[in-house]
Amino acid sequence: MDNIIPLISGMAVVTYVPRLLPFFLIGSNELPKRVDAFLKCIPVAAIGALIIPGVFNAVPDAPMAVICGMGFTLVFGFWKGGIIVPVLGSVAITYLVLLLTV
């Protein structure tokens, strides 16, 4: 394999610059209301697409494990909230379902 350090450097630059640029483009300027409202909606607009449909393939070929694991997060997170318990609980339940079904 050739030296790929230049490739890695190039990838680092084209990944970093788009992550950095908005902080300077937007900065502390007062934004038009419409643009501000648009930016405020980005998290909700992104997160649905980040979860679905990717989640269905989170554990390859084991849809039942995914349903049980995410079901736990949904129920526990809805009633009790928090992050650690819903996440570790879902991993544990997915693990158990895989143990029992595979």
């Binding site: 980040l50 989170a58 494990a65 693990y95 895989l98």
Partner: peptide, 24 residues
């Protein structure tokens, strides 16, 4: 392998857990 596989759910579970308070 089975542990690695089940850890694959962690990021999705995290996203759902942080989203739920907003959805409520």
């Amino acid at each position: 392998e089975i542990l690695t596989k089940s850890m694959g759910i962690a990021l999705y579970s995290l996203l759902l857990a942080i989203l739920l308070p907003e959805l409520k």
